[in-house]
Structures are given as structure tokens and as C-alpha cells.
Amino acid sequence: MTDFVSASKYAASPDRVGEPDRHPDRPAGEFICNVLSNEWVNGEYKLLALETPPRALNARAGQFFHLLCPTPDGAEVWMRRPMSVYRIDKDAGHLQFLYKCEGRGTQGMALLEPGDEFNIAGPFGIGFHLDPAWKNIVVLGRGVGLATLAPLAQMAAENGVHVTAILSARSAELVMSRDMFDELGADVIAVNDTDHSSDVDNVEAILEKLIADGRADAFFTCGSNRLLDLMKRLGKAHGVPGQVAMEQIMACGLGACYICVRTFEVNGEKILRRVCREGPVFDIQETVGW
């Protein structure tokens, strides 16, 4: 891995575990973390645990870090990869990321071993928001979207908010994070494509029932356009507010380059917003199909 700055002979601006914070007043930073573990959770996903400098632990649910991935093949990986935080453990000083191994960046990440150093930048973006008036929320995630939604369950538990989590996946084996949601006291409903329980009609019926039972003060979703559309439609019909975490290719992660824009509709007008800065969490009703 080439890391231009920390390879420098003279100075290294990234903060390191166990060293004094060089930029204590900044909300975000560039951190060199220690890899604690990096294990497969199923055939497609790995869980990376890092020991980080304290400032990185200010991350909130829905925020992301921008990861400088090692090379999987000897050639350069030019850009960082955005990943939302999966778990924040302030007491231990640990951060976790749950990620799907896909292209070159995430394949490179999969090679990290305990004891390796890993450069992450963040926390960036605006995370999930819990209104004090909400007592029961519904979290609907699919695939890797569950990684983004998991810390929301942690935040809800800390705030005494009840969570119903609908976890969707291609097959029952690929349903992730069930343990984490269980542990946090959420009602978990797992659905999958194999037995068609993840069909929109069935998920719609589940959501309708939760609304009727007064269990849906707010909706949260990530990971599927279909499910986003469903929550948008039901949220509009029943007046349930909602938030969605969105993805887009990024370069700076800070709001400078306008590479990460997506279209939104606000008061009938189409506008562009930066996923890294105005998001990645957005109002469900302002999203438009992509």
C-alpha cells in the first residue's frame, strides 16, 4: 500500500493510536489504526475490527469513514472507499466495519491481518437522527445496508427507543447482523428471496401491520431501491417520517469535489445533493428513483 503522507520521511499528519492528537479541535481526521481482526462472517462479507485513536470514536450511526485500501494485486488502488461504521465501542477504543468483498478496494481490505496498520479518514457526513418523540422505529435493510443500519439499533437502544428490524437477504444464510439486533433487544423479522418472504407485497403487509399497531413512529432503510420506494409510498400514505442512507462514488468525502452527487426532489424542484456532505442519510420523501 502506498500511503504518500505516512511514507513521508519528515512528518506524518495522520493521528496514531497511543500518540498525542495532532488536530484535537477537528471534528474529523485521518487516522492510522491497528487491525485487531478481519474475519469472514459468510461467503461474501467480512467484519473488520480496528483499534483507533479516540477522536475517530466520535462517529455517530449513519456516518462513514473513507478507507485507504491496500492493493489486492500490486497495482495502485487510487481512491479511498466509503464505509459506514458498523459498531462503535468507545470504552474499548474500537471501531468495526462490515463489508462486502466486491471490487479491487474491498478485495484489498480483505487481505488485512491482525497487527497491520490501516489508514481511515472520517467520520464524515450526517448520520441518522432520532426525534425524542419517537418511541418505536422500524428498520428495514437489505444486504450490506444492514451494516449501515446496525449502529442505529445501538443508538435507539441507548435512547430507550424500541426497534423492529426487518432484515432482508437473498437467502437465509446471508441474513447478517441478526445477533447484533437481537442482542440490542430489537424485534427481528428475517425475510429472504428463497422462500419469497422478501417480496415487496409481503414486506408491505408487515409494514402495514406495524403502522396499524402503532409500532412505526419512523422508518429507516438502506440497501435496496425497491424497499426505499416501498417505505416512501407507505410513509407518504400514513404520514410516517423516514430516513434513508444512500451511496454514491466518492473522491474527497468532505464536500469539495461534487463527485458524489445524487438527485433529490424538494418542493417540486429537482436538486443535486452531495452524499458525503448533505448525506449519506436523507429524508426518504425527498429521494427520487435512480
Binding site: 504518500f4 503522507v5 512528518a11 499528519s13 495522520p14 485507504l68 473522491a251 469535489c257
Partner: peptide
Amino acid sequence: YAGFRNPTALTAIIDDLEAW
């Protein structure tokens, strides 16, 4: 580009230039 790669690159390069 270096500021995408390492968000702290600009100030690190100033420090390095001084030391150099």
C-alpha cells in the same frame, strides 16, 4: 489528488517542505 488520497496531505507537505 493528494488531498483526496490523504486529507491531511497539504499540511503534511508544508511540514515536510520546512524540514527538507
